[in-house]
Design a protein around this nucleic acid. Structure first.
Ligand code: ZN
Ligand code: ZN
Ligand code: ZN
Ligand code: ZN
Lengths: 140, 140
DNA sequence: CTAATCTCTCTAGCAGCTATAGGTTCAAGA
DNA sequence: TCTTGAACCTATAGCTGCTAGAGAGATTAG
């Protein structure tokens, strides 16, 4: 039997976050002591580790809820689980691509400032005028 | 004189967002008509474009507030502006690095699933056991 | 003048927590 | 057994950067 604090120490998930996950339906409401405090078993420790790992990989609460649901049915085909991971991978890649555009643009802007005063600072000018951007990229 | 809708169309910033920026102190409260509607001038159009561009580059509201402040003082040295951009570039790079770790790990996990059922799905197993992660990377 | 379209303020909601306040319970030492 | 201090409880508000809605008032073209 673990208290919520034990669980927190063992998984690295903060106490309020554990309660939040319970509220969000990622972990079931556990048994309580007579005094109304949560008491967990090993099962819940494992599930919380699962959740933490999934969060560290950037999966959303909703995706994790689905994965947890799936993991309760070992006989089902795993296409659903695979699809969740694959979709997430795609979104990670999309975000990387977008951030690289930003990186590129910021690099250019930062390196072009030869000014000494705000009046002729390239950073300020570049922000004021998107036309100065490389090929006037869409957005950015 | 532009209405808030005009400003919105010209800059691509949605109307509630413009009001939000006003509330956040990025743009000054403009003059009003007798009927209490906002009326803007070219100055504000330019500032809003500046803000939009900065947001597109991922700068925070707070950073933008500082940049706007700085841009009001053309005679000051531009080290502050440059520092904001440089710091932001660093944080973009850090985020890219982190996302690449995720990408790498997700790639590995997704490609390893040869299972057909949830019971032997590598995705589920990998999430359950961080030890399966490459060299047990910290986090992720 | 009327109808259609803006615009106004205020409030609440999104994700994923985190922090506080004000109270109760548990566990260990004397 | 009693006491104290740590841990726990609920409920609520806050964070970022918007976005959506309600319900009321303003503007403008015909
Ligand atoms: Zn500069
Ligand atoms: Zn640009
Ligand atoms: Zn699988
Ligand atoms: Zn891992």
């Amino acid at each position: 039997m673990y208290s919520i604090g034990d669980l927190s120490k063992k998984t690295g998930v903060k106490i309020p976050t554990i309660r939040y996950y319970e509220q969000m339906g990622l972990i079931a409401a556990p048994d309580r002591t007579e005094g109304n405090q949560r008491r967990y078993e090993r099962r819940e420790l494992e599930r919380l580790s699962f959740i933490r790992h999934a969060r560290d990989l950037g999966l959303s609460i909703e995706a994790i809820r689905d994965l947890v649901e799936l993991s309760q049915h070992p006989e089902k085909p795993c296409t659903g689980a695979d699809a969740i991971a694959t979709t997430h991978l795609a979104s990670v890649r999309a975000k990387i691509a977008q951030l690289k555009k930003l990186e590129h643009e910021l690099e250019r802007i930062v390196s072009h400032c030869a000014g000494h005063t705000v009046g002729d600072c390239y950073v300020i000018r570049a922000l004021s005028d998107h036309g100065l951007c490389e090929g006037s990229m869409d957005e950015v």
